[in-house]
Computed example of a mutant assay.
Amino acid sequence: MDQAYPAVVQDRGRVLFAQTMGYVAATTGFFAFGAYIGRNLLPGVAFLAYLASFAALIAMQFTVRKSTQTTVALLLLFGLLIGVATAPTLVYYASTDPQALWQAGAATALFVAGFGAAGYATRRDLSALARICFWALLALIVFGIVLIFVNIPGGALIYSILGLVIFAGFIMFDFQRLRRSRDIEVAPLLAASIFLDILNVFLFFLRIFRGSR
Rank of each mutant, 00 (worst) to 15 (best):
R123V: 06
T108D: 05
A136K: 01
C133D: 02
L137K: 04
W102T: 14
P153Q: 13
V146M: 13
I145G: 00
D97C: 09
A109H: 07
N151F: 11
Q103H: 08
D97K: 12
L110H: 02
L101K: 02
A106G: 10
A136V: 03
V91I: 13
L129G: 01
S95D: 04
L110V: 04
A121W: 14
L137V: 01
S95Y: 08
T122C: 09
V142E: 05
L110N: 00
L101H: 01
L137H: 02
Q103M: 13
A113C: 11
R123H: 14
G114T: 12
Y93C: 05
R124I: 12
L110S: 03
W102N: 10
A106D: 02
I152F: 07
V142N: 00
L137Q: 04
L147M: 00
I152P: 00
T108I: 12
G114V: 11
T108N: 07
D97S: 05
P88Y: 15
V150T: 06
L138W: 12
F134W: 07
A139T: 06
A118N: 08
L140G: 01
L137P: 00
L101D: 01
A117W: 15
W102A: 13
I141N: 09
V142Q: 04
I141H: 04
L147F: 00
G105I: 11
L140D: 01
F134Q: 01
